[in-house]
């Protein structure tokens, strides 16, 4: 089953108040979900729980049948690609192409080069492929981190505030790329304040409040 299931998820950072107090929900294949809620409602923590960087204090998260408690992040990465808020935390290759190829190569994808080339094309970065990532404007570096995630070829993609710091031309590129990826029927989880931007693509929304799912819309597979 290509889904993600949350059962009675509880989570607290050591010595802090609980962030999640019983989250129950299921994410179905092909959904395009926005994760929203006020600052501090745990949206970014949610992504770290998804790929096993953090483990639940109680309850379970199952990603495609794998319990995140017992599965290493490096293995979950083959199924779910996550981007975080600071591009500078991940960029290390000396070329844009090398950066995008890093993920699929780690996962041992035999078509890493093709995946990387496709992602560069999709995000309008092909023209910069041989440049150093730090020679790109900051907003293109952010697109680069998104392209790097897409290139991993995972069925699930989770982005933390991907549209922040993107100006209109990059926003349009990003939307066009997501449109072009539609036929691949991947599942998207997007933490964002920018609901209006993603509205045309989204199939549902999960609103977090007081450590629980306050509202869950959509919930069935994406309509054709």
């Amino acid at each position: 089953m290509m889904s993600i299931v949350f059962e009675d998820l509880h989570f607290a950072y050591p010595g802090s108040d609980p962030i999640f107090r019983g989250v129950n929900c299921e994410i179905h294949p092909g959904e395009f979900l926005l994760l929203t809620g006020s600052n501090g409602s745990g949206k970014s923590t949610f992504l770290r729980l998804l790929n096993g960087l953090l483990k639940p204090s109680r309850g379970n998260i199952t990603v495609e049948g794998m319990n995140t408690r017992e599965t290493a992040t490096a293995r979950l990465a083959a199924v779910i690609a996550v981007t975080f808020q600071h591009p500078s935390d991940q960029i290390f290759a000396s070329t844009v192409r090398g950066e995008v190829r890093y993920g699929p190569k780690n996962l041992g994808r035999s078509n890493a080069d093709t995946l990387a080339a496709q992602a560069l094309d999709l995000f309008g970065l092909a023209q910069y492929a041989d440049m150093h990532p730090y020679d790109l404007p900051a907003s293109h570096r952010r697109l680069l981190t998104i392209a790097s995630a897409v290139a991993m070829g995972t069925p699930f993609l989770a982005f933390d505030e991907p549209s922040v710091h993107l100006s209109q031309p990059e926003r349009l590129l990003f939307l066009r790329a997501l449109e072009a990826l539609r036929p691949e029927k991947r599942t998207y989880l997007i933490v964002t304040h920018d609901v209006r931007f993603f509205r045309p693509l989204c199939t549902g929304e999960i609103v977090f409040q007081d450590g629980r799912v306050h509202r869950r819309s959509g919930g069935n597979a994406r309509p054709a």
Partner: peptide, 30 residues
């Protein structure tokens, strides 16, 4: 933070020593 970001990209930061050494650059460079 860098550790998390690279691990999320499948970097073998917690696996065998030789593979870990190779992923060292991906932590040091950022």
């Amino acid at each position: 933070r860098i550790f998390s970001a690279q691990e999320a990209r499948g970097a073998p930061v917690r696996s065998r020593v030789d593979r870990r050494v190779r992923s060292f650059l991906s932590i040091l460079a950022p």
